[in-house]
């Protein structure tokens, strides 16, 4: 303005009003930030920041889901692990039965019959463990939502004393050989199940058919088989179950780590989003004080500058 010699009241007030409007709009922006607590209220406030926030919010959603997936997988593995430990204990009992059966005298038929019955009941117990479910879905059936060893009228006869005994059908594995997987990190899916086929086998070569054989050998006093092939096969089956239990344990440990990682990523992303979107309260409060003070000063000064006119001094 200094280079313009002539000044009129209206031109002066035009500039002052314009300056006050700009003060006021700055003040309003700060008030909005203070009220909402957000520095980023619309994309134009910070286009680059908006892009980052949208992308990070999307990542937060995904990593939260990874943590959920890992949690689901972990629960399944722990359920399977619990069942496998019970199976190991049950097989230990069978081993005890086999050893006492092999050493029992041939005349002690009632003892042998009791041992035989015990093994049969343990078989039922293990069939129960094999059908363990998590969230109403069997954990040893891979990707099929069905009991791994369905027992009942449709299946073959599982009573070894029966003439129509049919272990191939009775113990046929009905699940899938593909284990369930869960995505726990970008592009990384891990197994969250062991299949019944791998743990218990299928049909005539399954652990259930072995237990039937053992119970028959016990009933018949076939000590050579008991101390020979039965014991060897039982120990092999126990090894398989123990290995599967160990396998679920190491999978659990890995997936727990994945879950922790996903949760850490979520927290870290949330902090970064906060840094971009949240207004710095201290800074906003200070700037707001300054802006209010300067707006008031502008109002007072303008009121004083605009007032005087020669008309007031003429009588």
């Amino acid at each position: 303005m200094s280079d313009i010699s002539r000044v009129t009241q209206n031109s002066a007030s035009m500039l002052m009003v314009s300056d006050m409007e700009s003060d006021l709009s700055g003040l309003t922006l700060l008030q909005e930030q203070a009220a909402s607590g957000k520095a980023l209220n619309q994309p134009s406030d910070n286009p680059t920041g908006t892009s980052e926030v949208l992308s990070m919010n999307s990542q937060i959603g995904r990593y939260q889901q990874y943590a959920t997936n890992a949690g689901d997988g972990l629960s399944r593995l722990q359920t399977a692990s619990g069942a496998l430990n019970s199976v190991t204990e049950a097989l230990n009992q069978v081993q005890t039965d086999v050893l006492s059966g092999a050493n029992a005298s041939a005349s002690d038929s009632s003892d042998r019959a009791a041992l035989s019955a015990d093994v049969l009941s343990i078989k039922q117990e293990i069939l129960g463990y094999a059908g363990t479910t998590y969230n109403n879905k069997p954990v040893f059936s891979g990707t099929y939502g069905t009991s791994p060893y369905p027992q009942g009228s449709a299946s073959g006869v599982s009573d070894p004393t029966s003439a129509s005994y049919d272990p191939a059908t009775a113990y046929a594995y009905a699940g899938s050989t593909t284990p369930l997987t869960r995505v726990v990190a970008p592009g990384q899916s891990v197994n969250v199940s062991v299949t019944g086929n791998d743990v218990f086998g299928s049909g005539a070569s399954s652990v259930f058919a072995l237990l039937d054989t053992i119970s028959q050998d016990l009933a018949n006093g076939n000590t050579s088989a008991l101390s020979g092939s039965d014991l060897t096969q039982l120990q092999a089956a126990m090894n398989t179950v123990t290995q599967a239990a160990g396998n679920t344990g190491s999978l659990s440990a890995a997936i727990t780590q994945d879950q922790t990682n996903a949760n850490d990523t979520v927290s870290s992303l949330q902090t970064q989003v906060g840094n971009i979107t949240d207004a710095n309260e201290d800074q906003v409060a200070t700037s707001l004080d300054l802006a209010e003070a300067s707006y008031q000063a502008a109002l007072e000064t303008t009121a004083k500058i605009i007032q005087p006119s020669l008309a007031q001094f003429l009588s």
Partner: peptide, 14 residues
């Protein structure tokens, strides 16, 4: 610009 125009051509009441 408008203020300059108003300065140059508007009414100065003083």
């Amino acid at each position: 610009v408008n203020s300059a125009l108003q300065s140059a051509t508007g009414v100065n009441t003083d």
